[in-house]
């Protein structure tokens, strides 16, 4: 059926539709973004139709743009808080507690965390906006007049992202935990290891691979899901939550600087590429 030698025309023909779609609607836009990032194209005005290559002009602008560097810093804080601290710790805590808690609470906590993960981004954003704005449930806890979303925007946005993603990480890490054999844990107990010692010196090292893969995947998921943040704050107040994808969007579509916005998008593509590369490496080691 499959020719032993030469070109397998039928095979290539079967692959062609998928290959063309990926080439035209995935790889071509990325390549085009790197070109646009070095032009003076704008959303409206004379540079909307007639734009040209401006060489390193946008790059110079980028290097001197304090808003960009601030945004890069916000992105680092945001990703560290939501992916590293939040989702990994909360996800692991959930997965571990699930193994030791009463079955009723296991089911309930699992169902709620998974429901929060399943909800579409706009619904999660609405829920958290209502929860954290003036008069919302959270502000009632602080007396009703507070506006937590306005007072601590980055913290609230990070909490919302943790809330929306921890269920996923709970499932991944729960799978990893179930993969640890009972004999190993029994052996640790026989050696009189405390619960904390067992966790630190047996469970964590055995979980290393799932933890790393999960962390990289969650980072990419949260980076992609910036709609959640955008709907809650639109990057505000005063750019306090203007993480890179939001800053790129604002430059392109709010300030009409499509070329410069594309360049900021390129920085994001490079960052995502770095994480995706590490992710592929982590998966293939398994």
């Amino acid at each position: 059926m499959v020719p032993r030698k030469g070109v397998d025309g039928v095979g290539l023909l079967l692959l062609a539709p998928a290959g063309l779609l990926l080439l035209l609607l995935f790889l071509a836009p990325v390549a085009f973004a790197f070109y646009l990032g070095l032009t003076n194209i704008s959303l409206a005005g004379i540079h909307a139709q007639h734009y040209w290559f401006t060489g390193a002009a946008n790059l110079r602008r980028l290097s001197q743009d304090n808003s960009f560097w601030h945004s890069l810093w916000l992105t680092a804080v945001f990703l560290f808080g939501s992916a590293v601290v939040g989702v990994t710790v909360v996800g692991l805590a959930l997965a571990m507690l699930m193994q030791h808690a009463h079955v009723f609470w296991q089911r309930l906590a699992g169902a709620l965390a998974i429901l929060a993960w399943m909800l579409p981004p706009v619904t999660a954003a609405l829920i958290w906006y209502a929860f954290s704005t003036t008069g919302g449930t959270l502000s009632l806890l602080f007396g009703g007049q507070a506006d937590p979303l306005d007072d601590h925007p980055m913290l609230i946005v990070i909490l919302a992202n943790i809330w929306a993603t921890a269920g996923f990480s709970m499932m991944v890490l729960g799978g990893g935990l179930r993969g640890i054999s009972r004999e190993v844990l029994e052996a640790a107990r026989m050696e009189n290891a405390s619960r904390i010692q067992t966790f630190l010196f047996v469970t964590l090292p055995l979980m290393r691979r799932s933890l790393v893969t999960n962390l990289l995947l969650v980072t990419l998921i949260i980076l992609a899901n910036y709609a959640l943040t955008y709907i809650m704050t639109a990057g505000g107040p005063n750019d306090a939550t203007a993480i890179l994808p939001i800053y790129a969007y604002q430059q392109g579509f709010t300030f009409s600087n499509l070329g410069y916005g594309a360049l900021i998008g390129d920085v994001l593509v490079l960052i995502a590429t770095g994480f995706a590369y590490l992710y592929v490496r982590a998966v293939r080691q398994g």
């Binding site: 020719p3 397998d8 692959l15 990325v30 085009f32 910036y226 790129a248 392109g252 916005g261």
Partner: peptide, 27 residues
């Protein structure tokens, strides 16, 4: 089927699952 560079293609596919398309919205 016998696809040239199949392993490379599969790595590329896995790699693309990690690239968020929303950030290429301008191009």
């Amino acid at each position: 089927r016998r696809i040239p560079l199949r392993d490379g293609l599969m790595i590329t596919v896995l790699f693309l699952t990690g690239i968020p398309v929303g950030i290429m919205i301008i191009p």
